[in-house]
Design a protein around this nucleic acid. Structure first.
Length: 230
DNA sequence: GTCCAGGGCCTAC
DNA sequence: GTAGGCCATGGA
């Protein structure tokens, strides 16, 4: 029954209304907080299942060692990279992922992100998803934040957010949620960029704030949604 | 000491 | 197909 509601005017208005509420409540998040496209991609890997704080420490360590180029990452010894990214947790696995991506970039696009991102978005998405260690969230983050492509990023926060609002149920998987946003949001990079960042920030903030926050945006909208839903 | 943070892969059932 | 284990740091 929920899936039939995709694309209704209510959903579109509601999503933008929630977006504006989150934006005015938390302010713009300015994602992705890295200096270059390559750094965004590297940090998308480093931040897998770890707080941004720890991922950033690992990124800065690579940067200070002058290792933030595809060639440097490939040519450096595994242990050298691993020791630099220990703070990002699972450093052995992540070292392999960094090397795998850099090899892919050099082999397929001569190391050029311009060439890589000039490819059709969905084709590139499918291609990136074949790289070991690159799941949907990581790939969509890379497409949106590094490639400036209209690929909405979903995650556990996003699913929980929509379920709490009553807009979807638990049968929605990652692709359903991505499609839900992409079908109902304006085709606008700023909105895609900030919406995901705001949901993550909101998830983090409400988690830290305990369930007593009287100003909780979601709670107010839960009631609002209940009034709208038949 | 315990919990959890901006995942994804692999294996057993 | 899916639940659960694995990876194994650092801050609160």
């Amino acid at each position: 029954m929920f899936k039939n509601r995709i694309g209704t005017m209510n959903d579109r208005k509601l999503l933008m209304s929630i977006f504006n509420k989150l934006l005015s409540h938390y302010g713009p998040r300015h994602w992705w907080p890295a200096r270059t496209r390559f750094e965004i991609i590297i940090s998308a890997i480093l931040t897998q299942n770890v707080s941004w704080h720890n991922a950033k420490k690992a990124l800065c360590s690579l940067r200070s060692a002058g290792l933030l180029t595809p060639m440097k990452i490939i040519s450096s010894n595994h242990d050298v990279i691993a020791s630099r990214i220990k703070s990002s947790r699972f450093y052995n696995e992540k070292t392999k992922k960094l090397k795998t991506f850099c090899s892919y970039l050099l082999d397929n696009y001569n190391g050029s992100l311009n060439k890589m991102f000039s490819k059709d978005m969905e084709a590139l998405r499918e291609e990136l998803l074949t790289i070991k260690g690159f799941g949907r969230e990581t790939v969509d983050s890379i497409l949106l934040y590094a490639g400036k492509k209209l690929s909405f990023v979903s995650d556990a926060y996003t699913a929980r957010f929509l379920i709490r609002l009553g807009l979807i149920d638990k049968s929605f998987d990652y692709e359903d949620i991505r499609k839900y946003f992409m079908d109902n949001l304006p085709k606008d990079l700023y909105t895609y960029n900030e919406y995901h960042a705001l949901i993550v920030h909101h998830g983090w903030a409400t988690c830290k704030a305990k369930p007593v926050c009287g100003e909780c945006v979601v709670k107010r909208y839960c009631q609002h949604i209940k009034n709208l839903t038949p």
